[in-house]
């Protein structure tokens, strides 16, 4: 990776993290502890990364900025896991199951849609 690509990852990561931090304040968890903000981040990030992976060249600076940096930092696995533990510890098993299945189902569907749309646009 060149110096510009490292800079692109850092700038993209700064933007993705800022958006996730801001959405976390804007959309606090609902009364039953459902983490809305992280769900939105993970699903939107999956779609954008699918699109970017299909449209942009591997190893390009733009993919480092949008993919590795922005989408990588906007989406998160650690908070996803810890929020599931918090729900399970408060015996909110149904909310935990709904959260896990919605995140994975919508995330995979969004990633697939992004890849398909990107492939169609790339022609």
């Amino acid at each position: 990776m060149s110096g510009w690509e490292w800079l692109a990852v850092a700038v993209g990561g700064l933007a993705g993290g800022a958006l996730r931090g801001w959405l976390g304040l804007l959309l606090p968890s609902t009364g039953d502890g459902f983490p809305r903000a992280v769900l939105v981040c993970n699903v939107v990030g999956s779609f954008v990364l699918g699109l970017a992976a299909a449209l942009l060249l591997p190893g390009s600076g733009t993919l480092a900025l949008v993919g590795t940096g922005f989408c990588g930092a906007l989406t998160t696995w650690s908070t996803f896991s810890l929020d599931l533990v918090a729900l399970l510890r408060t015996r909110a098993r149904r909310t935990a199951a709904v959260y896990a299945l919605t995140s994975l189902g919508a995330g995979l569907a969004a990633a697939w849609a992004g890849l398909q749309l990107g492939a169609a646009l790339a022609g």
Binding site: G17, S46, A73, L74, G107
Partner: peptide, 14 residues
């Protein structure tokens, strides 16, 4: 949060 990622997993699997 920045170290871990969800989108790379879903895009790789999809």
């Amino acid at each position: 949060g920045g170290l871990t990622t969800f989108s790379a997993v879903t895009v790789l699997a999809a």
